[in-house]
Structure formats: structure tokens, C-alpha cells
């Protein structure tokens, strides 16, 4: 199973949930930190670094002696990484997503692809957790291609938890795509609900099954619960607004290591997700 942890708003507790769930299961689990702009799961694990590999994006280079400025590459590129003028094609490497379409569509084979480094992928082992994360190089703006590279390291038949970047933009959809289930973490506040609604709309577009974890119960009100009940969205877990959790996090500790009474809460979360997943699978079979 691939379980993604996501949220519209930053700082709601995605990393807390991902780490504690990974730790609570005790059996072998892959944790993929897909927030490649600022990976942080490794800070909480006393992990042994197993591998460190640079990753590259294929960027077009135009051979001006072959190019007749026909403009096919520029029209194909959805990211506007190539502009075609009367006499030549101009490449903007920082906008390129590395799809390779320009070189395929060029009738004169004037486009050669050259590798541009975008960052590194690091693999760690900490007890039962195999952690893989990407780290974008400074100055690289494209997170999605690196996230896809991180996800290529997913091993089949092994439970995987994906810690998504916050928001609802391309890096988030690149992370969530092909997940079996998405757990959204939300705060019970007006801001929390606002960003939850954005994320729910995105998940409906992506057509992925999801449920909601409400974090810091007690700091706000009931609006997130009410919204979920009204929309028929599964409420997966309530995490109390416990100062000791924040203290553990701020020291770089995993909550269930310091407060073992929370371990069961995370195991129940996993049970609930598996239950929901078998229900949705049952429904889709019923629909067939």
C-alpha cells in the first residue's frame, strides 16, 4: 500500500503523522520524504545514510546550424521553456520539466538533450524505516521531476508512506498520483478548513480515496469535523493539542518514543485506513 500524507496548509502535522506512523508499525516500511524543497524527516531519525545519488534532468540544447526555427518545439512545450524567433530557438532551462517532447518533435534532429543536475536523492535506514528523500539544489525551481525520481525508488510489495509538500500545486499532485490512499492533516481553525477545502477539491480531481486527520484538537472549534460529516468524508483520527507533542517535535524526537501512550492512536489510524481502503475497493468491484 502507498499511503500519502498531505495538507493544504503548511505546519499542520504531516511529518509528525508520517514519522509516527512509520515508527508505530514496527515492520519494514518505506518513508519517502517528497518535500524536496525542504526535506526534514531525516532530522527525527538517527539514520544511517546508505546512498547518495545526484539526479539529472534532460534539458534541450539547440544546434543552431540544423535549426530552421520552424517553431514546432516551442508550440509543443507546455512550460514555455523554448521560445522560437524568426531565426533561432531560445531555451530557458529553468522552466524545462525534462519531458523530452521537443527533441522528439524536431523534424531536423536539431535538439540534443543534455543533463542538468537538479539535486540529490539520499537513502537512509533507521530501524524498521527505510527513508528516501530528494533535495533540490539551490536555485532549481522545479520540484516535480525530482519528486518523480524519489518515487521511482519505491519498492513494490512494501508498505510506503509518502510525506507530501504542503499546498495544492504541481509538486503535491506529483506526490499523490498513484497513491492508494491519501490522509489529509488539518487544523480545526478557519484557516485550516479553508485550505482543507482546496485540498479536497484537488483530490476529487485526482480521483483518489482520502480521509481527514484533525490535529491539535482543542485549539479551535468543530468546523473541520462538521465539514467532513456534511460532505461524507472519513474522519480518520483526532490528535489532541498536547503541548508535550510540540515539545517532542521541537527537540527532534518522534512523539511515540517520548509519549508511548500515543502509539495505539497511530496503529488505530492504520487500521482505519486499511478498513476504508478495503471498503472503497469493494465498492469499485461492486460498480464493475
Amino acid at each position: 500500500m502507498i499511503l500519502a500524507i498531505a495538507s493544504g496548509k503548511g505546519g499542520t502535522g504531516k511529518t509528525t503523522v508520517a514519522l509516527n506512523l512509520a515508527k508505530a508499525v514496527e515492520s519494514s516500511v518505506q518513508l519517502m520524504d517528497c518535500d524536496v524543497e525542504e526535506p526534514n524527516c531525516h532530522l527525527f531519525l538517527k539514520a544511517l545514510r546508505l546512498a547518495d545519488e545526484p539526479v539529472f534532468l534532460p534539458i534541450p540544447r539547440v544546434n543552431e546550424s540544423l535549426c530552421n526555427a520552424c517553431g514546432l518545439c516551442s508550440r509543443l512545450c507546455q512550460y514555455h521553456a523554448i521560445a522560437c524567433l524568426q531565426e533561432k530557438a531560445l531555451v530557458f532551462p529553468e522552466l524545462c520539466h525534462g519531458c523530452g517532447g521537443c527533441s522528439l518533435v524536431c523534424p531536423r534532429q536539431a535538439i540534443q538533450e543534455i543533463d542538468k543536475r537538479m539535486g540529490v536523492i539520499e537513502t537512509f535506514q533507521a530501524g524498521n524505516i527505510m527513508l528516501v528523500h530528494g533535495r533540490l539544489d539551490v536555485g532549481v525551481a522545479m520540484a516535480s521531476p525530482l519528486i518523480r525520481e524519489v518515487k521511482k525508488r519505491l519498492q513494490k510489495n512494501m508498505f510506503a508512506i509518502l510525506d507530501a509538500p504542503p499546498g495544492t500545486s504541481c509538486p503535491v499532485s506529483a506526490t499523490l498520483r498513484d497513491s492508494d490512499y491519501v490522509a489529509l492533516v488539518a487544523e480545526p481553525t478557519p484557516f485550516g478548513l479553508h485550505d482543507l477545502i482546496l485540498t479536497v477539491n484537488m483530490l476529487r480531481e485526482l480521483n483518489l480515496p482520502f480521509g481527514v486527520i484533525v490535529n491539535r484538537i482543542g485549539m479551535g472549534d468543530n468546523r473541520v469535523h462538521e465539514f467532513c460529516r456534511e460532505k461524507g468524508i472519513s474522519l480518520l483520527m483526532d490528535i489532541p493539542d498536547d503541548r508535550r507533542i510540540a515539545e517532542a517535535y521541537s527537540r527532534g524526537s518522534i512523539v511515540i518514543d517520548v509519549l508511548p501512550e500515543y502509539r495505539n492512536l497511530f496503529l488505530q489510524l492504520l487500521d482505519k485506513i486499511q478498513e476504508r481502503l478495503s471498503e472503497t475497493r469493494g465498492e469499485s468491484h461492486a460498480n464493475l
Binding site: 512550460y79 514555455h80 521553456a81 521560445a83 530557458f92 522552466l95 504541481c170
Partner: peptide
């Protein structure tokens, strides 16, 4: 455009 509006 999501990106590259100026270029286009």
C-alpha cells in the same frame, strides 16, 4: 499560463 507568460 502557469509559467512562461512573458516568454510567450
Amino acid at each position: 499560463a502557469v509559467q512562461g507568460a512573458g516568454i510567450q
